[in-house]
Amino acid sequence: MNDTRSISPSDLPSIGRGKDGVAAADTGPASDHFDGARFFNPGGSGPRGILDLLRWQLTERGESWPDACPSPFATDRPPRRVAGNTLRVSFAGHATFLIQGVGLNILTDPVWSERASPFSFMGPRRVNAPGIAFDDLPPIDVVLVSHGHYDHLDAATLARLWQRDRPHIVAPLGNDAAIRSHDPDIAVTTADWDDTVPLGNGVDAVLEPVHHWSARGLMDRNRALWCGFVLRGLGDGIFFTGDTGFDDGRPFRRIAGRHGAPGLALLPIGAYEPRWFMVDQHMNPADAVLAFGLLGARQALGYHWGTFRLTNEGAGRPAADLAAALAAEGIDPARFLAARPGQVWTSGATA
């Protein structure tokens, strides 16, 4: 693994792309998580193969979802800026948070499209509206993209943000090709695990290894990297996980050891059934509660549930399973909230 280093957009060339738009990750040097052609989880597992996928789709029956699952929270209208030490975090839905503090506006994995899919007419469709209307977003300074799956990297939304605000877009190696698919002029800082990217106003983003995988088509599996982000200089630190399996707790022990306990952990709690298929790529709520403990975080917000139907559990089951897991561990449920679109967390309080 590389030593931690600080980079800016001018320091890193694009990783490139092939004629089909697939990231040309084989242009980079081999490392402990890249074999010269594809990325992998060191000491971990790769994604399931086509036979397992067929077994899941043909033999498993999931819980039904409603056509609409509206949030109990009103659509948020964020302030233009949040100054000083106050931290304001608004949940737009799925894996999209607006993080505001020290005068910066940061979006994670922004998805405002109707479907998490390469197609406008098929694929997982929203069952609730974004918790922030796109036109109500304040000027966005930074966008963090954790990996290339369609429910996290929405090229159409990124192109809209670029045309409107010209944000600093940060993503792990290889994801620039997909981001530029809607607009080849979009500037992207691509970085490796352990790299530090200055975001301005004294805030840094550190790309951290998590246990996942990537693909946007049939031929590009693991040709682009995945990561979580530690944000230093905002409150007492924030960890945004992206997507990950629990991986025996290794990602969370590592982050706590390198950065100390974050003040706020943004942890995925959905898309986990059937467990035999999803265990290596997505945590369930019990895993997320264990991760929360390993991080030593004071507060957590759970996401990746209740917006797009991706797996077999029902729309509301992650919240119920989270409540049960917190009770089993004797943790105050106010410390780990199953976030709903439009919900706002501000320096330890919710609104």
Score class of each variant (00 low, 15 high):
127 V>L: 07
221 R>E: 10
10 S>F: 09
36 G>C: 05
267 L>K: 01
151 D>Y: 14
177 A>R: 05
62 G>I: 13
343 Q>F: 00
223 R>I: 03
197 V>G: 09
3 D>V: 14
10 S>Q: 14
178 A>C: 12
26 D>M: 00
148 G>Y: 01
13 P>T: 09
111 V>E: 00
125 R>P: 02
40 F>T: 12
327 A>H: 08
210 V>Q: 06
89 V>T: 12
290 L>H: 05
85 N>D: 14
149 H>G: 05
297 A>V: 05
191 A>K: 06
306 G>K: 04
242 G>I: 09
254 R>C: 10
122 M>S: 11
171 A>E: 10
122 M>K: 10
7 I>L: 15
21 G>R: 06
58 L>I: 05
210 V>C: 04
115 R>G: 12
55 R>G: 07
96 T>P: 01
291 A>L: 11
96 T>F: 02
215 A>I: 06
206 V>M: 13
68 A>L: 12
244 T>W: 08
269 I>E: 09
303 Y>P: 04
177 A>D: 06
31 S>G: 15
288 A>H: 02
328 A>N: 01
232 R>M: 07
242 G>K: 02
102 V>G: 06
230 V>W: 13
79 P>Y: 09
149 H>W: 10
161 L>S: 10
62 G>Y: 12
127 V>A: 04
325 A>E: 01
244 T>R: 04
75 T>E: 12
132 I>G: 03
19 K>T: 06
246 F>V: 05
121 F>R: 11
109 D>M: 12
122 M>G: 01
41 N>M: 00
231 L>W: 03
308 F>H: 14
217 G>A: 13
34 F>V: 12
96 T>W: 02
219 M>T: 12
180 R>V: 11
29 P>H: 07
264 L>K: 05
28 G>W: 11
171 A>P: 10
117 S>N: 08
251 P>L: 11
79 P>T: 11
307 T>D: 11
109 D>K: 03
15 I>E: 02
225 L>K: 00
284 N>V: 03
32 D>A: 13
218 L>R: 14
95 A>P: 01
204 D>G: 04
86 T>V: 14
339 A>N: 08
216 R>M: 13
155 A>L: 09
